[in-house]
Amino acid sequence: MDAEKVLSTDDITIRFGGLTAVSKLSLDIYPGEIIGLIGPNGAGKTTCFNIITGVYAPTEGKVYFKGKDITGMRSDLITKEGIARTFQNIRLFQSMTVLENVLISKHVRLKANPLEAILRMPRYTRARRRHYEECMELLRQVGLEDVAHEMATSLPYGKQRRLEIARALATQPTLLLLDEPAAGMNPQESLELMKFIEQIRHRFELTILMIEHHMEVVMGICERITVLDYGVTIAQGTPTEIQNNQQVIEAYLGAVETNA
């Protein structure tokens, strides 16, 4: 496999019983790109994220991350490799504060054992203090510093979405998967989010794969777009190519227009 690619999926297919949710999807993503994954509801976009992050193993096909085969690997190990994600339906830890949500990402980096933690031995407390500083710094960078000690679920919706992204960033990924980050946002908020994504992309040197329904967002920041319909890839190309693709207009963009 080509090690230069950050992510490469090789004809991945997944079936749930009789339903083929994703069919022969091939994505190639290069360092620093922002790639869009679009398609009507139920097209298989989230399922595709679930395959890449190891929630599901594909029925057929392979997933390569930086040239390494990660097909069917456990989710937490894939996170360790450097892929992080957010969830379409927000999945924050509801019993925890904003800071604690972000701190969870550092747990896997602890070298100390539970006994050292219970006895508050130096190796544990030192690492923990460093993680605390790192997470506070991250919250500062994403503008959530002032709510660091608030309960995560008490935040307004837009900030909860932002926290989902911050939490993913805290795992120090090279590839970030965003599942409808602008869902439920008004145009003003989507615009801000778009700027925010641009910002973090440069600051954290990220490669981004994003599912999004807001066309302004997708067309505005994605360099290349893949369109799914009933699990099948119906088009791949630049925003302009996608906008002018007849099949896409029929399957998806047309539907949006008639809805609107």
């Binding site: 989710s75 992080a84 969830f87 969870i104 747990h107």
Partner: peptide
């Protein structure tokens, strides 16, 4: 699922 996605 979120815990696992955070590397736990």
């Amino acid at each position: 699922i979120a815990a696992e996605a955070m590397g736990v």
